[in-house]
Design a protein around this nucleic acid. Structure first.
Lengths: 251, 251
DNA sequence: TGGTGAGTATTAGTATGACAAATGAAATTG
DNA sequence: CAATTTCATTTGTCATACTAATACTCACCA
């Protein structure tokens, strides 16, 4: 458990990720204590210095807690720095758990329509170009057919660009953080995707609304995008209040 | 610059905070490089080991970036992990800058009404008690007069309790993070506070709405609370779309 | 018997010195 | 002039020793 598979090179990042995943995936449970640093160092075949460096990082992410003569203890998920980019990347496994995914989609539903709204007010030329450009890369039409497939990377870029354009320092933070999560949800959503055209249409509405400085349109369009995603994921999200005109967004 | 004032004991935390503040307050500008680790160690009168540990922490917070043969470079504010609790504590200075404060109040305006709404759905008995209890500690009436002063700590507890009651993992994250910021804004707001009674009334509406599982009331009440705060701070927040019934909340 | 306090063992924290690896810049060479 | 090699600088890693904090033990005492 406290060693790397032979296939992996034993550098700092792989050890970090290995330990982090043990925690995230639940192999190490809350309040459990790890072996002491020397034992870990031996297990991973590295120096205690490096182990300490790794633990320092995980501590900063809120995964563990260290105390003299007690050792390294796993902290509760409530202490985890869930918005940390790396942490989210490592969380792809747990993302399938519905509570986690639900929290995440709720967060998006709360943040992103407002971000789109703010973007409609504040986006500058560079922001607009970024949004436009990612939108145009968002679908690949297969030649000779009418079939359309969505480009996940461009989709992520689109959402990130809008959050960036919101001009809010804190939203940008969250934006950077949910990128990894978006990657996963979009992947799941695309897999089950029934009608990419509808989703694409919503995205377009967001784009044109931002271009026309239409705040309500941007808000509505983004709601539409997210509602599509949510229904594709088969999730039930209740309780988030969207602006009243949301209904008209969906037809 | 790279040493501690004599009054401070040279432990890890004080060095960490010292360096962090140099970055946050702008004494060290973006892309500037720090002296090498050995020089820093000499300056602070500690070992290179400790300097490295400090830098590791600041790196994790996104303040700096380290590279072999280049050194330690200050990163752009966009890379800072602004939601980090410690970072926010150290940011009290910069909070007076309006861009920062504006971003923060926007974030609250986006997050907190929704959190209150979710709390109205999901709050369990413990959550409710916590909210109730912090509300009851929120004002101190001076005996013999009708003067009422707000209790900042209880106010913070109230907001935190609601965010916790929302049951959303990510919102809790943000809640923990904006605590420090709340401390500052509430402080500013209380200083300029004209009518604590009005604010108190809004808080009460939030509480009773959550108790009665009234989602819209909770949402409205929280909007009212925040609008009070914003007007007390003399801020101009535009572009965030609140639910349509918001206006009636203040009227 | 039950608590109290000194002592012990364990574990993380700090210090030191040496070397490895990466890399930017200068010197060399075709 | 361009490509390449060498060199110097800085972070990265390692080994070892020692320090500080603290949970635990166990003898001692009321």
């Amino acid at each position: 458990m406290y060693s790397l598979p032979n296939s992996e090179k034993k550098n700092k990042n792989s050890i970090r990720e290995h330990l982090a995943r043990l925690v995230i995936d639940g192999a190490l449970k809350q309040d459990e204590v790890l072996p002491n640093e020397l034992a870990l160092a031996k297990g991973f075949g590295v120096s205690r210095t490096m182990v300490r460096d790794v633990l320092r990082s995980l501590e900063e992410k809120g995964l563990i807690e260290r105390k003299t003569n007690v050792g390294t203890r796993i902290r509760s998920i409530r202490s985890w720095n869930l918005l940390d980019t790396e942490l989210l990347e490592w969380s792809s496994g747990i993302l399938t758990q519905s509570r986690f995914l639900l929290s995440l989609m709720e967060l998006r539903l709360i943040i992103e329509p407002q971000a789109a709204c703010l973007a409609a007010i504040r986006a500058n030329d560079i922001d607009l170009q970024l949004i436009r450009e990612s939108f145009s890369r968002m679908w690949d039409s297969e030649v000779g057919t009418s079939k359309v497939t969505l480009n996940t990377e461009a989709d992520i870029e689109f959402h990130k660009a809008i959050i960036k354009a919101s001009g809010n320092l804190f939203l940008s933070q969250i934006g950077g953080a949910i990128q990894a999560a978006l990657h996963h949800t979009i992947y799941l959503s695309n897999k089950a995707n029934i009608d990419p055209a509808a989703s694409l249409e919503c995205h377009r509405r967001v784009l044109t609304s931002i271009e026309n400085r239409n705040t309500e349109g941007a808000y509505m369009g983004m709601c539409c995008v997210l509602e599509n995603t949510i229904s594709d994921l088969g999730l039930q999200v209740n309780g988030v209040i969207l602006s009243d005109f949301k209904c008209s967004a969906n037809g």
